[in-house]
């Protein structure tokens, strides 16, 4: 489903050039649960952004569901993000003025989904993370774990093929982290592809497959690992 071949990502910095990713090749099959680990500055986030069509490789090929997406126009890439890819961020990124329900409806609002359908689907997504009773609360009335579960509901409400999570438990205590990972893993068991960026080895250990990244290079060959 995800196929990276010889991907480089470079940034010009002053006179020189920084290589965030060097010749990365990676294949992820549908339904996999992959942990992407590495020290900070290793290029984890850059790789996640490229996977999520937020960034483009400087060089190399990226096929998403069999389609080369590197050269797609921005409108097509935002359609992909809207319909096929879900994001979960370390800092939740919920809009403070909207209720949990409103935040979950956001991708559908900008996607032009009719109001009634929006309400029903948002309620369903909130139910799937166990937060239906809190639908009317605003983010500042929710705990950290609850906020991240709202963010997960928002990520899956459009029925994406993959959820990309960037340090989803980085801001949470142990118990909340357990809840959040439990929710994500349950969705993974139902067929959702899951890519989790983390530097927490315990969290990574829960994944069926672990990919190490150091200085922009995939440290070990992921193929065949289970």
């Amino acid at each position: 489903m995800i196929e990276l071949q010889g991907v480089w990502r470079t940034y010009p910095v002053g006179e020189g050039v920084v290589h965030a990713l060097r010749d990365v090749s990676l294949t992820i099959a549908p339904g996999e649960h992959v942990a992407l680990i590495g020290p900070s500055g290793s290029g984890k986030s850059t790789l996640l952004h490229i996977l999520g069509c937020l960034d483009r490789p400087s060089q190399g090929r990226y096929c998403f569901e069999g389609r080369d997406v590197v050269a797609l126009p921005e409108a097509e890439r935002s359609l992909l993000r809207r319909t096929r890819i879900g994001f979960v961020f370390q800092f939740f990124h919920l809009l403070p003025r909207l209720t949990a329900q409103g935040n979950v409806e956001l991708p559908m609002l900008f996607g032009g989904v009719p109001r009634e359908e929006r309400k029903a689907r948002a309620a369903q997504a909130l139910a799937s993370v166990g937060l239906l009773p809190r639908a009317g609360h605003r983010p500042d009335q929710l705990s950290g774990g609850e906020r991240q579960r709202v963010a997960i509901a928002r990520a899956v409400v459009m029925n994406p093929a993959v959820v990309l999570a960037d340090e989803p438990t980085g801001n949470l205590d142990r118990a909340s982290a357990q809840d959040v990972m439990g929710v994500l893993e349950a969705m993974n068991r139902q067929g959702l592809t899951l890519v989790v960026v983390t530097h927490d080895p315990l969290l990574a250990a829960r994944a069926k497959r672990v990919v190490h990244l150091a200085d922009g290079v995939l440290a070990d060959a992921p193929a065949g690992e289970a």
């Binding site: 935002s78 359609l79 993000r81 900008f110």
Partner: peptide
């Protein structure tokens, strides 16, 4: 900025933003 970035990450089309 964060809100706009989020909307873009969620795939909101630029004309709608």
């Amino acid at each position: 900025r964060a809100e706009i970035g989020l909307l873009k990450a969620l795939g909101a089309p630029a004309p709608r933003i």
